[in-house]
Amino acid sequence: MTRPPTAAQRRVIDAADPVTGRLRGTEAQLAALVGRGLAFRHPRPPHAHFLTPAGHRVRETPESEPGAEAPATATPAGSEGSGGSEGSGVFAARIGGEEGGGTGPARLREVHSAWQGLLEMRRMTNPDGATDRPCGWERTHLVRAAALALEAAGHRPADAAAASPGYRVRATPQPEAVAVHEPDPGALRACAATLEKAGWQTGEHTEPRTGSRYVLASPRRA
């Protein structure tokens, strides 16, 4: 738990872009929000500041009464704050097979914000500024990047706790390739279509031992 933001900080949070969470304010205000885990500074020029999931929660929570405490915060780590990262309290795209994943408005907002941040990373790091193909970060975080594209498009990951079907994204021995498993053939083809739209090359294959179908996907280069 921590103190609620000051009135000036709250105004900066409330004025953030409603889709991307991009912030505008003085350097001191932005640095203070970063220090409290409510914002992160993008590692690439122009080093814009964006709300973290905790910052989004503050914006959507009515201002507290005097003396009330704000929710505990979580700070993204480096560039993974906008593209999906791993660790306790930090956003991570669901690769399928996790237990008890939420699907409410807060999760949908976090996923949308992460996907928009990833598109912005593509724009700033691809040499031609293209947003229709993966960037360097995605090529070094293949499983999380593919999972984010799927979750952002509305596909449901498999839930281990509920034993519910859904996609599972897994690493493969092949360089720059992940495997997407989905027991429903139609849903598997839909996953492939989503990844192709997100800039991945896909192909459907059959597992020799089980006969089950899966999609092999790799980031498109051009």
Rank of each mutant, 00 (worst) to 15 (best):
A39W: 05
Y167E: 10
P183V: 08
V178Q: 07
G78D: 15
A190C: 03
A106Q: 13
Q201A: 12
L23P: 12
E138M: 06
V215D: 01
R123E: 13
S88C: 01
C191H: 08
T194F: 00
E60S: 13
S218V: 02
F40Q: 11
E80F: 10
T75N: 01
G81N: 07
G83A: 15
V34T: 12
G211Q: 08
P105W: 06
R156V: 15
V19Q: 13
G186N: 09
L150W: 10
G211I: 06
R156A: 14
R122L: 04
R122G: 07
E27C: 01
R139D: 04
R94I: 05
P71L: 07
P4N: 08
C191P: 02
T2S: 03
A7E: 14
A15R: 14
P76I: 09
D132M: 06
T52K: 06
E204I: 12
V34K: 08
L195D: 05
A145L: 09
P183S: 08
D17G: 07
G100H: 13
T125Q: 10
I13K: 04
R107I: 07
V111H: 10
P5I: 07
T202P: 03
H205P: 01
P45R: 15
R144W: 04
D128L: 01
D14T: 11
A217C: 00
A163S: 13
T140G: 04
A145C: 01
F40N: 00
R107D: 12
V58C: 02
W200T: 04
D159G: 11
D132I: 05
M121V: 02
A48E: 14
G104R: 12
G21N: 09
A163V: 07
P43T: 07
R109T: 14
W137R: 12
A146V: 11
R123H: 14
V180Y: 10
H42S: 13
